[in-house]
Design a protein around this nucleic acid. Structure first.
Lengths: 163, 163
DNA sequence: ATCAGGTGTTTTACCGGTAAAAGGAGTCCC
DNA sequence: GGGACTCCTTTTACCGGTAAAACACCTGAT
């Protein structure tokens, strides 16, 4: 239970005993865990030639169960419209998605998984879930549930206050 | 307590009822919270003309209580050596740090906060702690402590398994 | 019908990150 | 003391991201 962030927190307590650095323990670990998870996933996905960001696009399309527009994908992936365009261009050239301008409003683009894209994400997503559970292997099912609940409460509050 | 990640999890349950997607609740929220925290901090730091990454370098130097070498800063900030060089060059040009080649081993560089850098980070760090506590305002002190403990356990396990 | 204003997507210009190569300095061993 | 090896930092070449401009299209008022 002694990790890199705990050591950082101790250093701060020594240097600035006047401050309450309790939030550092939470924030630092959230950031560190994110870095770890991203790295593990990127590495695994590289074998199939897709990046984490591209995986996210495929995931969003798969769980939506139908076509989405670029603007919806942009919102879903918390990134810029320009990034979405680049990802779609690459995924299209890989044959994993199709882009078609909408008939009723020709500004809009309908993005869909191709048969190949559908098969890929349906294989990759279950692998990802297992992999992520593996990273969190130190926690029991019960602890995982409590962690999820605390994070949900924190995130809901943060999104309400900022988003 | 109903957030964006909860909706994503529900979509997956509908599309792939065969999978256990409980880890998505934890991982998704960790990732989302990281994005939120980074955005809030970057925005606030921009007023003083430093990026989040530059702040991290200054923080590492301040809590170390003395000089560090670029390789130590690279390890401390979980980034590449090239990134460290760029950040140091910028921070040096801003007059916030100094670089001096070590006397006993001239491959090594001794990076230190200048008086100005010391004063800046000593002002910014307390602001950051307060800001981060604000993002997590939905949690009580007790919940924050339990969240920190669960994250510590998860992270210690993950670091042992991978790092 | 036209045009002002708004919306959805892509393009442009740039910025900060990385991997790998290069450069400069120490160590070891014959 | 010269050469192979290793270590630390910086440079190089490139890649994926963003903000803002450009582009294409729709809508509603006139």
């Amino acid at each position: 239970m002694d990790d890199a962030v705990g050591r950082i927190q101790d250093q701060w307590r020594r240097q600035r005993p006047d401050l309450d650095v309790s939030s550092v323990g939470v924030v630092g670990r959230v950031l560190r865990l994110t870095a770890l998870l991203k790295q593990v996933n990127e590495t695994a996905l590289a074998e199939d030639g897709v990046s984490g960001a591209e995986f996210e696009v495929l995931s969003a399309l798969r769980r939506a169960g139908g076509g989405l527009r670029p603007s919806e994908l942009t919102r879903e992936t918390l990134s810029s419209g320009a990034a979405t365009t680049k990802r779609l261009t690459r995924l299209e050239s890989l044959g994993l998605i199709s882009r078609a301008t909408s008939a009723r409003d020709r500004r809009e683009v309908d993005v869909r998984l191709t048969e190949e894209g559908y098969e890929l994400i349906d294989r990759l997503f279950p692998e990802q879930v297992v992999r992520e559970r593996g990273v969190l292997d130190a926690l029991t099912e019960d602890e995982l549930a409590r962690l999820g609940a605390l994070l949900a409460k924190a995130l809901a509050g943060a999104e309400r206050a900022l988003g």
